[in-house]
Each structure stands twice: as C-alpha cells, then as structure tokens.
C-alpha cells in the first residue's frame, strides 16, 4: 500500500464508522391525547423526521405542525389557527441526547430502557425535557424507539381561552414512536 492509499484510508475509515452509527426516519409517529370529562382530543403526525447518532447519543426530531391530523376538521382548524399559530410557528423540534444504549445492545435483540434529555421547541418557545423511553431491537435488527411524556400548553406560551379551558387537559400526553433505519 503506497502512502497515498494510506492517507485515503485514514480519511475514509472514520467517515464510514460515523455513518454506521447514525439512524434516521422520515416517517416517525407522534401523537397526542387530551382527556377531560367534556371532550377527548387526539391527533397524530406520521411524517416526523428524526436522526439518532447511536455513538454520541445525539438525537433530533422535527415535525410540521400542519401535518397533524385530527378526526374532526374543526378541531384541526382551531389547533392550527388559534392555539399553535402554525403559520407563524410551522415546526416543532427536539434536540437532545439519548443514553442507556450502546453499540453492543444494538447488535442483539432486546428491549432497553433509555433516558432522553434535551430541549423541545414548540410554538417558538424552548423548554427542557427529561423523560424515559424504550429502544427495541428485533431479531432482524430493526430498531424502534418509543416514549411517552406530558406537555403543558401554557409552558410554551399557548393561550387557551377560558371558554374552552375545561375541554383541554392541562397536561397533554405525547407519544413518540420511531422506526429507525441506518443512514
């Protein structure tokens, strides 16, 4: 091997190793549920993008607010126009770190409890979040990550008029499910 080839290998090997540890999805699923004695509200978005670097733990999500689908059109319109103001704040994002799983666990089937710490930006307001989740590796090596955590609309500056306050839960349950594939 000549000197030029050695230099090329030195450059390419770290790049290849980095790519091997990165996972992505463009069809991640996020749903939320609000339950009060007066009304239940559910919505889902399955066009969430996410990139997870298993080596460093770096984890990111991005979702379009207008891609949330409701059973009732009126709820969807109020959600976009009155509460989320999705024309002004079209996306919600998460940036943080996932810990509790490494390359060894990813190489064998199992369900692993992980912790996630980071910042959610919703309605233009950043808030720290800390939660637990699971990462499941099946026999074929497919990776699914899930988590459930609450979000309080008021924490993100989302104003809910008094007239409908009793119809919307103070803490909205958010469920995340990502089926990752290697980048």
């Amino acid at each position: 091997m000549n000197l030029r080839s050695k230099f090329l290998l030195l450059f390419l090997i770290p790049l290849a190793l980095t790519a091997q540890d990165r996972y992505m999805t463009r069809t991640g699923h996020v749903e939320f549920h609000s339950s009060t004695p007066l009304e239940d509200i559910d919505a889902e978005n399955d066009k969430v993008t996410s990139v997870w670097d298993a080596a460093s733990g770096a984890l990111e999500f991005s979702m379009l607010i207008k891609a949330f689908a409701f059973e009732k059109a009126l709820m969807q319109e109020h959600f976009n126009e009155d509460y989320m103001e999705s024309t002004t704040f079209p996306k919600a994002t998460f940036k943080g770190k996932l810990s509790g799983i490494g390359a060894d666990e990813l190489a064998k089937a199992g369900t692993y409890i992980v912790s996630v710490v980071g910042t959610i930006t919703l309605h233009g307001v950043e808030k720290p979040v800390k939660t637990e989740g699971t990462v499941t590796v099946d026999a074929h090596g497919a990776i699914q990550a899930t988590s459930t955590f609450p979000i309080r609309p008021e924490d993100h500056g989302i104003r809910i008029p008094g007239l409908v306050r009793t119809k919307i839960a103070e803490a909205i349950e958010v469920k995340v499910r990502m089926d990752y594939r290697k980048m």
Binding site: K47, T49, S50, V51, S62, L64, K66, K91, T93
Partner: peptide, 12 residues
C-alpha cells in the same frame, strides 16, 4: 402542502 421538514428536507 404542509411545508418542508428539517433534518431530511422533504416537502410534505
């Protein structure tokens, strides 16, 4: 059209 996403810049 709901916009363009981040990370993987798909138009949705």
């Amino acid at each position: 059209c709901t916009g363009v996403n981040d990370l993987i810049p798909d138009v949705i």
